[in-house]
Design a protein around this nucleic acid. Sequence first.
DNA 1: GAATGTGAAGGTTTTCACAGCA
DNA 2: TGCTGTGAAAACCTTCACATTC
Lengths: 220, 220
Amino acid sequence: MSSELPIKKRISESTIHRLSMYFRTLSLLQKEGYETVSSKELARREKLTPAQVRKDLSFFGSFGTRGLGYDVVELKGKIGEILGINKQWKVAVVGIGNIGSALVSYKEFTRQGFHIVKLFDNDQRKIGSNHKGIIVSDINNLEKEIAEDGIEMVIITVPATVAQYMVDDVVRAGVKAILNFAPINLKVPQDVYLRNENMSMELEYLSFAIMNNHTPKNKR
Amino acid sequence: MSSELPIKKRISESTIHRLSMYFRTLSLLQKEGYETVSSKELARREKLTPAQVRKDLSFFGSFGTRGLGYDVVELKGKIGEILGINKQWKVAVVGIGNIGSALVSYKEFTRQGFHIVKLFDNDQRKIGSNHKGIIVSDINNLEKEIAEDGIEMVIITVPATVAQYMVDDVVRAGVKAILNFAPINLKVPQDVYLRNENMSMELEYLSFAIMNNHTPKNKR
DNA sequence: GAATGTGAAGGTTTTCACAGCA
DNA sequence: TGCTGTGAAAACCTTCACATTC
């Protein structure tokens, strides 16, 4: 199950995030018909330095050719392998409100290998309804259905007040990766990966930046 | 217009993001009835170190009382002032698709002072329709209506293929802060703040973490 | 000649540890 | 005594600069 790539050092979160960006840009370069790309060009598109790009990649191996650059398709494949998105992930969404149902149609997920195959809610009026071909299941069947379908990741989009209960259920069902949209700090066991998506945060950063003329602009 | 707080050093993005987290947790502490909070307790809730909390705050002033901690309401007010979210921001959403319309009902924005007061789309079938009491305007009236209503921030939720055109319009209308949900690297002038919200990124991090048993878990 | 890969340098962020104050 | 505020140390991340390879 673990990657065959030579991961020597502890990799920083920023490096992983940049790999995500490279992956997306490489897809675009591929569509644009480029066969190779230099660290310089990749850096220009991401507003980074070429050294940063090369260093990020160097943690995982030597993927380029001196004098030439990187083969676009090959590098995309390697980064996909590193990120684990060459495989298809099965994802469930818990909480079919405004955001939850928007995510069901979010094409970027599918494009990156994340397939939403199951929806859960606790609202009787929503259970049984159809969203993009998926029937909303009762949250009470979560443990059973997650096991049956081999769900590996769960996205939580329930209100903050009930998010911890839902996460507890999800953890009990054996899921090890959770993306939380509820504005609350959730508790999960040590061996479960939890990430929070906080959409206000970026607006708050913009607010701060305007009020204080904050420099590093246009980053992230 | 600029803050009266003594900002001495250049503040890191991470510090700003943590301030957002403190703000939200302080709101919760207030609701829970706490009058004071120590850096230790705040750190525990955010999974940070107490020193980190104190250092973050120290960039902006001395808000605590030695031996006691921080007054919850007072600190919340100070952080709100630093972030510029004690004021109410007028926000427009451009692109009323799945995500765009979900954001219109996203209560967390309102709670943090961001008020979506205007919606734009280029689709004739959507123009004139009502979303939570807001009538969708024609994108062609963007410049005029943004000026009229004093819109200060714009959220872009159009497809990647047209995002750059929309942003160009928004920039021309004089908006200095843009939050982009389209999966593409947009160009804006130096004096415009642009942030990208990339929801796949966090799933990609989870994917990487699972595949590689990545440590720092439960962060962010 | 052109561009990678990488130690070493430089810069930034976090943590430590303790003086200082309620 | 308890907890803040902060220089100094440690850890971490980015950039430099150049040997290396195509």
